[in-house]
Amino acid sequence: MFLLGIDSSVKRGIVCLGEKEDIIIQKILSPHSSSQQLLPSLDILLKERGKKIRDLEGIVVILGPGSFTGLRIGLSLAKSLAFTLKIPLAGIPSFDVWIASFPGQGIICPLLQAYGDKFYTAFYKKDERKVYRKSKYLFSAWKEIEERIRKRFPGRKITFLIPEEYENLVNKIKLTDNYSFFFLEETAHLKTLLKVGAEKIESKKTDDIFTLVPLYISSPVIKKRGK
């Protein structure tokens, strides 16, 4: 199955073409430029492989959390292509992909740098058969995350998943014996994205083009300030 994969949730968006989990070709966009580069990049990738847009058999797109505008652009492109080409569309939360590319088990906490010193995160439990999300999606400062760990998972081992490009985040975290870190490599991330997407499409668990929306984590700023 010839697939288009899009992740525009992060600072450097990525587009790729692939067959199941084999990336045929990929392009990493320069930071904060998804809106301008996404569509032209797809065009370049197709041309480089001598493929036509009509050769696409499915689209896999990251739903978020992440960049507000990036997600809008990525999803708009994915949805309009799926609609016009009449091909299946699979939208996937990025943490699902991260956890699928992590080979270990246990309590897992993916950390995605948001804005204003906060993170997008959630808590997961992974055993040999399944992954369970154990909390709602969070938009929290590190202090709040630590507090939550103390309350919900006292004394448990926690594995934090962090994208390679944010490796230095670890320096900001007060380490304990219970914390371990797994750095997600970009290519592995893409491969997993294609794999998870292909599985979803093959098992006919595709998304509705008209109702699929980005995964936005509501921000606490919404509280009105008194005058």
Binding site: F68, Y115, G116, V221, I222
Partner: peptide, 14 residues
């Protein structure tokens, strides 16, 4: 304003 994602502009300090 919430449908514009203004928070990223205000707080990302780019």
């Amino acid at each position: 304003i919430f449908s514009l994602g203004y928070e990223e502009y205000f707080y990302e300090k780019r």
